[in-house]
Design a protein around this nucleic acid. Structure first.
Lengths: 91, 91
DNA sequence: TCTATAATTAGAAAAATATCTAAATATCTA
DNA sequence: TAGATATTTAGATATTTTTCTAATTATAGA
């Protein structure tokens, strides 16, 4: 399970912003990078971490690599929080 | 808003375990520390970070300091994830 | 095949984080 | 008030993370 990787991935504000950008639709690495005051290799590094955590997927189309959300992990993470709101005692 | 602090606090496995322990009920700093292979000051440091993120509260009772969950922030965090599961397009 | 564009990988430097030991603070009890 | 217990604070060190520049890989088009 890459629960820990996912939590660590989401802990960074740049990466959370990347995820939010992808809510509106798939974007290329370059398009994502254009939203940040940061060099492309740095953004690429963040994308790699998000991908390793299975929060995003990538697909090459010609010269471009498109990134998209993988929402299945979000469900797992959300469940983790949900369990705290109905802490029935033992867990 | 201490959204970022909360996400960073939760990114650490030790701190997530502390939160899970508190689901079952309030615990003193010492009781919490006894669950870890780590010196007390290290655990104390984690408690401080969780407290700064408003994920837990503390209350002194005599020599002991009891820690308890503050679930209100969990709701906010959960909402953040929820928004990804119904990404209607713009956000 | 050569050149341009898109993106990543490599490696280094700087900043942030986790952990430790020692010392300090707070409270209880005799 | 003195000693014991619970806990935190201080300061140091080691590890991890973020970011940068330079170099590399992959693809498209002339």
């Amino acid at each position: 399970m890459l629960f820990n990787e996912a939590f660590k991935a989401i802990a960074d504000p740049t990466r959370r912003k990347i995820l939010s950008l992808l809510k509106s639709g798939d974007l290329t690495a370059g398009e994502i990078a254009s939203h940040f005051d940061m060099q492309k290799p740095s953004v690429s590094h963040h994308l790699k971490i998000l991908k390793q955590a299975d929060l995003i997927q990538d697909q090459r189309v010609g010269q471009h690599i498109y990134y998209s959300l993988n929402t299945t992990v979000f469900q797992d993470l959300m469940s983790w929080f949900y369990d705290f709101l109905q802490k029935e005692g033992d867990k």
